[in-house]
């Protein structure tokens, strides 16, 4: 799979997902919802390949059906009464539609998050925190090193203990608990013991002698600037559009909206371009690559 957007600067990646997930949560207009869902879905296919179509549908469909059915059971707002429930409460068309819309919103946000997990690696998180304060990024980086090591060592100790007859996975419950407590206590000793040496290694390499700088492997290039400018321009237009009612849609008590106008189409288009930005970048890079290749 190509993954061009991933090579962009972490700040671009982060801002994109922050905006996109934010927009997806706020804009409840069915057209916006559809744009966000299709954008997230197609990007996840671009990122993770065809097999993700199946896995996406597997969690998306049940969520939508469940929420569309459950919402009217608890939400009785709306004026279009279809029938009365056994409890005597009304079943309204608005609540069914709202349930479906909310479900679409939830699944597209989940889908965006899964995409962002692919892009925002631990490196990038560490870097972004490093922008705030260098020591925070060091703490994060050390945690990312420590936790897997701790788990590995715990497993190794448990295995070795099993070899001399102290089994955590079988035998009498009381013995298992005793062994588990022992392993945990020695693991604390182990952590402290190792921390002393790590501290030595840090001091030996000048930790604490001067104000730290935060080195990073990322460079803010021209394409990052272009992406950022595009995002800001589109984002501003979308937010303005939302403020001036271009995406107005109300579910209760009666479904009301502003209709489709040239203005609202322009806002939706901006939103669509925004939602498809990573996909556009991927496609564009592939095209450019092909063009360069054909020249050779």
């Amino acid at each position: 799979m190509t993954n061009e957007f991933k090579t962009y600067h972490p700040i671009v990646n982060f801002l994109y997902f922050a905006f996109m997930i934010g927009f997806s949560c706020v804009f409840m207009h069915p057209v916006s919802l559809a744009i966000s869902l299709i954008g997230a879905f197609s990007y996840s296919v671009v990122l993770k390949g065809r097999k993700s179509i199946k896995s996406n549908i597997l969690y998306m469909l049940p969520t939508v059906v469940l929420m569309a059915l459950l919402n009217p059971l608890f939400n009785h707002q709306g004026v279009t009464i279809l029938t009365y429930l056994p409890s005597g409460n009304p079943l309204t068309a608005e609540s069914i539609i709202y349930g479906t819309s909310a479900a679409v919103m939830v699944i597209s946000v989940i889908c965006w998050f899964s995409c962002s997990n692919e892009i925002m690696t631990s490196d990038k998180t560490v870097y972004l925190f490093g922008r705030v304060t260098p020591s925070l990024s060091l703490i994060l980086s050390m945690t990312f090193r420590f936790v897997p090591r701790f788990i590995k060592q715990t497993k190794a100790v448990a295995d070795a203990q099993r070899g001399i007859g102290n089994d955590v996975s079988g035998g009498k419950l009381i013995n298992r608990i005793k062994t588990a407590v022992k392993i945990l206590s020695i693991m604390i000793t182990w952590s402290l013991e190792n921390a002393v040496e790590t501290a030595d290694s840090m001091k030996s390499r000048g930790y604490g002698t001067k104000r730290r700088t935060a080195f990073s492997i990322y460079r803010f290039g021209r394409r990052d600037i272009s992406a950022l400018v595009a995002m800001l321009a589109l984002g501003t237009y979308i937010v303005m559009g939302a403020v001036y009612g271009g995406m107005y849609f109300s579910y209760f008590p009666l479904i009301t909206h502003n209709g489709i106008s040239v203005y609202s189409i322009s806002v939706f288009s901006a939103y669509a371009i925004f939602a498809f930005l990573p996909v556009i970048i991927e496609v564009w890079e592939v095209m450019r690559w092909k063009a360069i290749k054909s020249k050779i």
């Binding site: 631990s122 060091l138 090193r145 090591r149 790590t198 290694s201 492997i217």
Partner: peptide, 13 residues
């Protein structure tokens, strides 16, 4: 000790 001297999680860091 090989492991304990390493402070961070990535080679470049």
């Amino acid at each position: 000790d090989v492991e304990n001297q390493i402070v961070t999680d990535k080679v470049w860091h």
